[in-house]
Design a protein around this nucleic acid. Structure first.
Lengths: 202, 202
DNA sequence: AACCAATCAGACCGAACGTTCTATCGCTAA
DNA sequence: TTAGCGATAGAACGTTCGGTCTGATTGGTT
């Protein structure tokens, strides 16, 4: 039965739409680009667009989910090549640093979206909040394997450095930002490994 | 001569416009709010608006300059009560932490603007870049009084933590974010003070 | 051959966008 | 008093916004 393809139905047009939207939304912002622009660059008609996405908001959500999928893939790669417990964290940090230095880097898609959708009840805001929670949870789990006692604050520290690096990466020299970020992560992981002795005095 | 008031001419209407724009732009974003909304809430007519601001972009620039003025005032306060060299840095960090926890906090106005105006040639982008450079320079100068050798990377580290804290402050628990931020700053300043002995081996 | 879903082409909708216009009002200086 | 000027009010500009609708054309399945 060839008609039973509801699991594998990428629908060429939908793919083009999503690819185009991802590129333009990330590069130029969400409110700044209209539906006309996207269907023009995707070489697709209005009717086709509204067949696949009931509204622009649905396309925006699909865009964020696509970026989430890509980032999750990056994390999974770092997880797959895990030798010692701290390696995945360093691998993720290196991946972030590499991302910042890559051409066309425009910051964190989710932080950018948060700036445009401050209303916490808006689906877009909730989508990005969910992504951030997933990332924090992932880092916390990894951090717990380095030092259980301070996993939570250490993970929050990691994410804070990441957020700062991603935010500043396209506003000043990406190389310097990456260096600062990696130095910060190294320091964080070093302190977290050494803390066992000093923390006992508290 | 009462006509010679070109230095002190706030022009009630202009003040209302700027105050309203600052409040709404910061709370809801820039592209998301139109001129209609601002003149309605400021209780001012279109003609009056366009008398004081040639275009919406000019109002946006005035908004950013206003926020810059406020932040500069905060830094000046921290500078005024300087006892030891590290005190101003801690005062600034505390002020940031307090800001994050204050009601209505919506992140960094300049990072939010950067998300909406990625074009580096746009006046708005250049305005926020100038602000960020000023802040980095300020922190670098202060950091140089703690330890000259590592002032530059330490200042970048400080700013990165600030950016991360400001970005995340309205996306998760502000109290936790503030704590994480202050812990990070404390660690940074402590390391920077202790580094003299360990850095010699490099 | 007949069908059906997807795509295309493009006119069309009301609303909102940033901006300009005309005209009136109220104050102050000459 | 009057001339001038900034603020007021509000209609209107043309464009773009997100979204709908009609109708023709395609291409694979039955």
């Amino acid at each position: 039965m060839a008609s039973d393809e509801r699991s594998a139905r990428p629908s060429e047009a939908r793919l083009k739409l999503l690819r185009t939207a991802t590129r333009i939304f990330y590069a130029e912002g969400i409110h700044a680009v209209g539906v006309d622009r996207i269907i023009a660059e995707a070489k697709v008609t209005r009717a086709t667009f509204y067949r696949h996405f009931p509204s622009k908001d649905d396309l925006i959500l699909a865009y964020l989910r696509e970026v989430h999928r890509l980032e999750r893939g990056m994390v999974d790669e770092a997880l797959a090549a895990n030798r010692s417990p701290v390696d995945p964290l360093l691998a993720i940090a290196n991946s972030i640093a590499q991302n910042i230095q890559s051409p066309g880097f425009r910051g964190c898609a989710f932080l950018n979206a948060a700036a445009e959708y401050p209303d916490t009840n808006h689906p877009v805001h909730q989508e990005l909040t969910a992504h951030r929670q997933w990332f924090l949870d992932t880092i916390t789990t990894l951090m717990a394997q380095v030092h259980e006692g301070t996993a939570d604050p250490a993970a929050r520290h990691f994410v804070m450095l990441r957020d700062g690096a991603m935010a500043a990466g396209c506003l000043s020299d990406p190389t310097l930002v990456s260096e600062t970020f990696l130095r910060g992560i190294e320091g964080l992981l070093r302190i977290n490994s050494e803390r066992q002795s000093t923390e006992a005095a508290r």
